[in-house]
Amino acid sequence: MNQHPRPFRLILGSSSRSRQQLLKELGYEFSILKPGIDEEAIRHPEAEQLVRLLGNAKADALVKMLKNEKGSSRTTAEPLLLLTGDQVVVHQGRILEKPQDPAEARQFIASYANAPAITVGSIVVSNLSTGKRYEAIDRAEVYFHPIPESVVERLIAEGAVFACSGGLMVEHPLLTKFVHHIVGTVDSVMGLNKDLTRALIERALAD
């Protein structure tokens, strides 16, 4: 259940399994809507600005979608919150998004032993009842031991890495033992800092 004294509805604008898992761990009930935006059409050379633009573009698309739904005028007293965001990996100054093919996934994962993988993510909470929006940028650094080729190939064969920025899956059993240390939190690396998310939801409900 949503553990908050004031009832509210929550929509997660993401199909990411890790974000869904982390939101469940926070104790929130939520429904899922996919924004369906063309992420490739939104570009920026700075990682922080890129994820901020993407997180807000997803929110804008879903707000429009909900307004266009038949009978979508909301008269309920319960606040309706929308949670969106995005994440990229920065490695040696280069922004990495989801790998496009096995060769790129192989390159991304194998290179993490050379320099830390820095995750940069945005969290955007929109209160559709008030029209206000609350957002934050979160960063973490992952340092790896050398990752054997056999492990990289098994990850690629499974295919889940193609849904993750930079092919980065620190929570995967095949990769955890090769993580040297993390500056930040595992949930940040997985795409949703739980403390920041809870704080933004609390702010959205308090205002």
Rank of each mutant, 00 (worst) to 15 (best):
E48Y: 11
E153I: 14
L168H: 01
R6Q: 07
P79W: 12
K34I: 15
E171Y: 00
S150R: 14
A59I: 12
E158L: 06
E29I: 14
N2A: 09
Q3R: 14
G13I: 03
A117F: 07
I109G: 00
A113I: 10
V89P: 00
L53W: 05
K64R: 09
I147K: 12
S122V: 05
S31R: 13
A47K: 04
L96H: 13
V170M: 01
G13F: 05
R133W: 13
A204M: 05
L96Q: 14
P79V: 09
L12E: 00
A113R: 14
R106G: 11
L205E: 10
R17Y: 06
V170D: 00
S129L: 07
P99T: 06
A77E: 14
R94S: 10
D138I: 10
V88S: 02
I123W: 03
E46R: 15
R133V: 11
T84W: 13
Y112Q: 00
L174S: 04
A157V: 11
S188P: 01
L192Y: 09
F8Y: 08
L22D: 01
T185F: 03
D86P: 02
V189M: 03
D195N: 10
A77H: 06
H145L: 09
G93V: 14
A105T: 05
F8H: 04
K34N: 10
L81V: 12
Q87P: 02
S150Q: 15
S18R: 12
V142G: 01
V151Y: 07
H4T: 03
K64F: 03
L192F: 13
I42R: 03
S129W: 10
F144K: 00
V90S: 00
L22A: 04
P102K: 02
V161W: 03
K58H: 05
M190V: 07
A204R: 02
I95P: 01
V189C: 01
A47R: 10
A115S: 09
E48L: 11
I11D: 13
Q20C: 05
Q3L: 14
I137M: 05
G159H: 06
Y134S: 00
F178P: 00
H172L: 08
L196N: 08
V142L: 08
H180S: 06
P7C: 01
S73K: 15
T119P: 03
R94C: 04
R94N: 13
A47L: 11
L22M: 11
D101N: 12
L81W: 08
E202G: 13
G184F: 07
G13M: 05
S122G: 09
L155D: 04
Q100R: 10
P102M: 08
Y112S: 01
K98S: 05
V151A: 02
A136S: 07
K194Y: 02
I182A: 02
Q49D: 09
A199I: 03
C164V: 08
G167E: 11
S188F: 06
F162C: 11
F144A: 02
Y112G: 00
R52K: 12
Y28A: 02
V142A: 11
T75H: 09
A136K: 08
